[in-house]
Write a protein that binds this DNA or RNA. Sequence first.
DNA 1: TCACAGTAACTC
DNA 2: AGTTACTGTGAG
Length: 741
Amino acid sequence: MPVDGPAQEQGEQLTLLDLPAPAPAKGRRARALARDGVHPAAELPVARVCVALPPAHLDRSFEYVVPAAMSDAAQPGTRVKVRFGGQDVDGYLLERTEHAEHDGTLAPLRRVVSPEQVLTPEVHALARAVADRYAGTLADVLRLAIPARHARVEGATMAAAAAVDEPHGETTPSPATAAETPPAVPPVEPAPALLSSAWQPYRGGPAFLQHLSAGGAPRAVLSALPGPAGERWPDAIAQAAAACLAGGRGVLVVVPDARDVVRVCAALDTAGIGPWSGTSSGGYVRLLADDGPAPRYRAFLAALRGQAHVVVGTRAAAFAPVSRLGLVACWDDGDDLHVEPRTPHPHVREVLALRAAQQGAAYLLAAHGRTVEAQAMVERGWAHDVAADRAVVRARTPQVRALTSVELAREGAAGAARLPGPATRLIRERLAHGPVLVQVPRAGYLPVVACDRCRAVARCGACHGALALGSAQAVPQCQWCGRLATGWQCAECGAGSLRSVRVGSDRTAEELGRAFPGVPVRSSGARAAAGVIATVPDAPALVVATTGAEPVCEAGYAGAVLLDAGVGSMSTSLSAGEDAVRRWLAAAALVRPHGEGGVVALVGDGAPGPTQALVRWDPAGLASRDLVERQTLALPPVVRVAAITGTRDAVQAVVDRLELPPGGGVLGPVPVTGSSQIGVARRSTRAPAQETLDAEVRVLVRAPLAEGHALVRTLAASLAVRSARREGGTVRVQVDPAEML
DNA sequence: TCACAGTAACTC
DNA sequence: AGTTACTGTGAG
């Protein structure tokens, strides 16, 4: 490989001899470089490079001369090292051109880091579109899209890759032709019985698959049904993948977490699509940050080289280079794990939508619940609503009962208990037939503690953080600064004793153990002793789980109890109702159908809309009503909104420069309180009291959807000015902010 | 007069 | 971001 050795030394020399750059005419450039010993590549001597630096005003390409010695290796999409502003920086070679647009002297590329073309033209276009959609930079998005290089993995798989791509031992692939005509994905013939069984119950389901395998680009929002093994959502996705492969195209599946990746991979196995073996071509790879750098890069390369035809992964996998992409699929788009925590915070649902449009791929959004954004896609006519008839829904789902305080009034005092009589009786009855799931909305043990006399929430005397009580603790501890609240006194009334106002999952498990002696109790959750449990056997047991950590029971739970319905469904967040329904449905979908005795009880006073949506198993109806409301209130997703959060002066400066499009407007600034301030407190060392409450404000800017591009463009421009001028303070921008108000 | 810091501008 | 060029003040 002539990439690392002589080429690098030549680069070093060049910089030493480089001229101060007094903007000579283009003809002189070649002569100057030749005098310095650089021979520009005979063909396409100019490289356009994206430098991997964060500042917003650097979000454009820079041109470099390609030395002849690097010409073969310096292909579009490779990682390169370039001299930029007096230092060596990493970058991506975007394009080779004949002539430079830049008037000054071009510096030479210093080094081609590896000949691997990790940035494909498709992913480049996607990353650009995502940056433009989210007021971010290409460099920021590429940081999310392309995993860190792992040289050993690259080296180890190089020979094998060459062998697969070029059976006759040609080690220098011709990238130009490879990009234009990617290797065809050989059609896979799945077992016919499995081809579409999971799609049969849905109106328009078989048609979607047919369209897909015929090479079309249908778009669907699927209301997933609970079902027997082989017909659950992972099977539906696997069968769609099989249909796509049958048409000779590749597949990308993005799910919220690693557990879902495992489920989809298992379903792919049963659908006749095995894991990529590493030696041959075909099969799926899993692409997760959780797997660590080496396996992750290995999977990335397998997809890049067209060896693996299916990629299953978590949010960053939305950018995976799948050759001949025919289908992008996302499971449960309402899960906030689909929002990238790093700037510019793109959402998988939107990334995949941009990608499907750019690459002519089919689009599948599948979930038990329904987000307003998905509903908007349906009502806008962009995607088909693929759902089962009401009769099928009723046959497949458990009976749902809402045990609200009205329902329980005749129970008297016992009705107000956290686990009222009817719920206890339901659990006892269902335990005779199998495991019963108990969903609790919060982890831990007595997570919120209040004054015993006046019921004010107990807060830390030093920093005002919320107090919590761990299971082995007698003294509550501050969740912000960690101090033990010994000798606590209520700031409101001066009383000295505490009580719990919300009860967590650990405590629930204890209480249930006492209420049902002899019944095994298992706890599942990130903070449970056994962690998150994947599956439980079909045997009588109480399974206590926090939301999102519900184990699957292959035979289905005999019943489920969803506790504290009011906790999640009545917050001030815009999507609180939708989120609550999504969590409830996730648990209820694990329960046997009504015909087999499956019953679900929702305990507590949830908001009426979400409660009805669960009882009627109609999340789309709720989403549709929410969408109407958003329309009348001019709220997203009917309008484009961006939240600008940070120190007051900095936010103000950014807002003042905006050239709002017609119909656009500014809301705020308002002081920020609550969770986003906790983040600040955690980051800014100790002594949070002063700094934390220091003027953090939030401004919301909005514009009609048709002006969304203009809004984001002016926002990006203002941020570019901010970074160029090095304005002080902090500013965070989030387009489509999840939490509002 | 030189020194050094604060700052403005640029990076192919 | 990081580097360099260029103002402006200060002590000698």
